[in-house]
Amino acid sequence: MSFEEEWANARAAATTETSMRLNAVDDGSGNRGLGRGLKVTSSVLNDRAEKAEIVREDFLKADNAALTETSQVGPSLKGFKSGPAFASFIDRWKSKVEYVEKLVQNDVAGALRSSAQTFTERERKERDRHRSENQGQDLK
């Protein structure tokens, strides 16, 4: 069998398998996740935001340790042409770390908190609506 024939067979098999996939995953117990739903609440989102903040803080600690060590390289290369290049490297490093920090802080943790706030407001409106609809009714 030539490479082209083998490749065509592999592609055909992959396409066939892909078209037969279901939107569920076997968890090992034979349960493919059917009937279970995703439950997201404001507390879940706030919890994830806090975890993102922990990641951000750990990232900054690791950056601080790396930068402390790396900052010593340039001065130790006095007399070498590559010595001053480390100043450029450190400036670029700082800008990239700042970018990642803001990304995690605003686009991850911030977005999760914003979504949690939206969930809370929607939950509050729904609660108030149900209270006003059920006001005066005898609920048993």
Rank of each mutant, 00 (worst) to 15 (best):
S2V: 01
E5G: 05
E6L: 04
W7I: 04
W7Y: 15
N9Y: 02
N9L: 01
A12S: 07
A12Q: 05
A12G: 04
A14C: 07
A14M: 07
T15P: 04
T16D: 14
T16G: 08
E17H: 06
T18H: 14
T18N: 12
T18M: 15
L22V: 07
L22P: 02
L22E: 13
A24H: 03
A24L: 06
A24P: 01
V25R: 11
V25E: 14
V25D: 13
D27K: 10
D27L: 12
G30M: 12
N31F: 09
G33H: 13
L34V: 08
L34T: 09
G35Y: 13
G35L: 08
R36W: 15
G37L: 10
G37R: 10
L38K: 09
K39H: 14
T41V: 03
T41C: 04
S42T: 02
S42H: 07
V44C: 05
V44H: 06
V44L: 14
A49E: 10
E50M: 00
E50D: 10
A52I: 02
A52N: 03
E53Q: 11
E53P: 03
E53A: 06
I54K: 12
I54C: 07
V55S: 08
V55F: 13
V55Y: 14
R56Y: 09
R56G: 06
E57M: 09
D58V: 00
D58T: 04
F59S: 01
F59Q: 04
L60G: 02
L60V: 05
N64R: 15
A65M: 13
A65I: 12
A65S: 14
A66L: 15
A66Q: 12
T70N: 08
S71F: 07
Q72H: 09
V73D: 11
G74V: 00
S76R: 05
L77A: 01
K78C: 03
G79H: 05
G79Q: 01
K81F: 07
K81S: 12
S82G: 05
P84W: 02
P84K: 00
A85N: 10
F86T: 05
F86K: 02
F86C: 02
F86G: 05
S88A: 10
S88F: 07
F89G: 06
I90R: 08
D91A: 08
R92A: 10
W93T: 03
K94A: 03
S95Q: 15
S95C: 05
K96D: 13
V97M: 12
V100E: 10
V100A: 09
L103K: 11
L103C: 09
L103T: 11
V104Y: 11
V104I: 15
Q105W: 11
N106K: 12
N106C: 03
D107W: 07
V108Q: 10
A109D: 02
G110Y: 08
G110L: 01
A111V: 05
L112I: 02
R113K: 14
S114E: 11
S114A: 14
S114V: 00
S115W: 14
S115H: 11
A116I: 01
A116Y: 13
T118Q: 14
T118M: 11
F119S: 00
T120C: 02
E121P: 01
E121K: 05
E121Y: 03
R122P: 01
E123K: 03
E123H: 00
K125H: 13
R127C: 00
R127W: 06
H130W: 07
H130Q: 05
H130E: 02
R131W: 02
Q137D: 13
Q137A: 11
L139Q: 10
L139P: 04
L139H: 13
K140M: 06
K140W: 15
